[in-house]
Amino acid sequence: MSHTTVTYKGSVEQRIDMRWLSKVITLSLDSEQILKETIAIGNQQTTIGELFNISGDNTSSDYVLENATQKMDYIGHALTQSNTLTVMGDCGFYTGAQLLGGRIKIEGNTHDFSGCGMSKGLIEVSGNCGNHTGSAFTGGKKGMSGGTILVHGNSGNFTGELMRRGLIMIVGDIGDHCANRMIAGTITNLGATGKHVGAGMKRGTLLFPHKPENISPGFHDCGRHSLGYLTLLLHEIRRFKSAFQSLHPMRRRVQRYIGDTTVEGQGELLVWIG
């Protein structure tokens, strides 16, 4: 399939704001023109052409960013429905922030605030994610409000903080304070989970293989359940090519805790049984 390749050829020490790339992708801008535009690097100005090459079919909606580094912030910021962006390398902060649709596939790790404020689309990370994955911008009151984040590695602290809707799937471990002040949505993993899960969560579902340590006293054990809807949820989870496909499609036995009763207490923490 034809695609446009954007290659990073620079080696600047400072951070690079990549929102220009989203503008190119969503507006299908002329590559020669965009390469002449200025970009701020630290306290200096340079042109995009000094740092990047753009090659390939410019009319395509599929983009590949090569040689990405963890200095690049806002990769795939606010992309829309029809766009696909593949990133070869690590990403900086705010990867896929405020995503409005489309797919971002990252062959590497991402820094903090991946998918923060996203409302639609898919972010797939082959490596690990930093803190605040799928959360809100600092000071914001609503985190991710739709879409899916699939991480094949681990995620850091505050995963799904203030999350409103959508699905976060972490194949590995999740750090501390997962689903902190979560409003609604679903978070699941296959590895371990850190401390203080679901503190202040109002609604939403957490689906883990092991009971996390230090669950807040606001959570209450409701016993063992066989929940029919888990089959539907598993159908959605298994749709993506990942380690989650190893879960049996008809699995539905869970230990159920509800919380956090210090707020609305309509959230649920489910732990697989058997």
Partner: peptide, 15 residues
């Protein structure tokens, strides 16, 4: 200013 960070995010004024 500190409370309305979303406002700061939405309206950057580059040097």
């Amino acid at each position: 200013r500190t409370m309305m960070l979303e406002d700061q995010h939405a309206h950057p004024d580059a040097r």
